[in-house]
Design a protein around this nucleic acid. Structure first.
Lengths: 103, 103
DNA sequence: GACTTAATTTAGCAATAGCTTAAATAACCC
DNA sequence: GGGTTATTTAAGCTATTGCTAAATTAAGTC
């Protein structure tokens, strides 16, 4: 529960929702944060049993364990679409602002 | 989301799930915690829009806003029954212990 | 108005969460 | 073995969280 209470971790979960990704891919996608921070969040998610880890060579691939997430899945989906809504609103406000300046 | 990440607040929500209760009733039911602490958690829940408040005289009655909780309801129910399970397990372990001592 | 009861707000404190930088591990390649 | 790449662990720091005790507000009663 506390695992998905954090927005960075929700972002990570979204990244590894449909397909597995290596720690490096995740860390370079999530920005404004260092690699170790991402690694720590991955460990927390794994300890909570919400993601799976597959090691291959020097890489570690992570993936959301949707079964383990249970009813949290619905909550996550709601929050993700809400985030998208906020982004869209921001973009629209930005566009209105530019249009007004141009006129 | 962070609102229900806290076990005290989940406990409060369970108390005011089916019927409204006054702040005092809630505070005296939830134990190991002071009134102000309960009051603060109630305010947090209210700011998050998850509970409603009705004032009558010197009393304030709170109640869970199940519509606002949306998919969080399923998560809460799962956690509550899980807590019950833990309590039952504890009780059973306790019983086994006593039985063994009695023999 | 003074008094009681119900509840909240304020101030301050201890524990925790999440981060950063630097050091360590682990698998691979030459 | 030495070097490189991928990732984690460790140590330490700051911000936030949840609490308590004390002060405050608010509504009713005499």
């Amino acid at each position: 529960m506390t695992a998905i209470a954090n927005s960075r971790r929700r972002q990570i979960l979204r990244l590894i929702w449909d397909a597995e990704h290596s720690a490096g891919e995740i860390a370079s996608t999530v920005d404004d944060v260092s690699w170790p921070a991402v690694s720590q969040n991955l460990r927390l998610l794994k300890n909570a049993g919400l993601i799976t880890e597959r090691r291959q060579g020097t890489h570690r691939y992570y993936r959301a364990d949707r079964r383990a997430l249970g009813p949290l899945e619905a909550v996550l989906r709601q929050m993700w679409t809400r985030d998208l809504g906020r982004l869209r609103d921001l973009a629209e406000a930005e566009a209105r602002f530019r249009r007004r300046r141009r006129d």
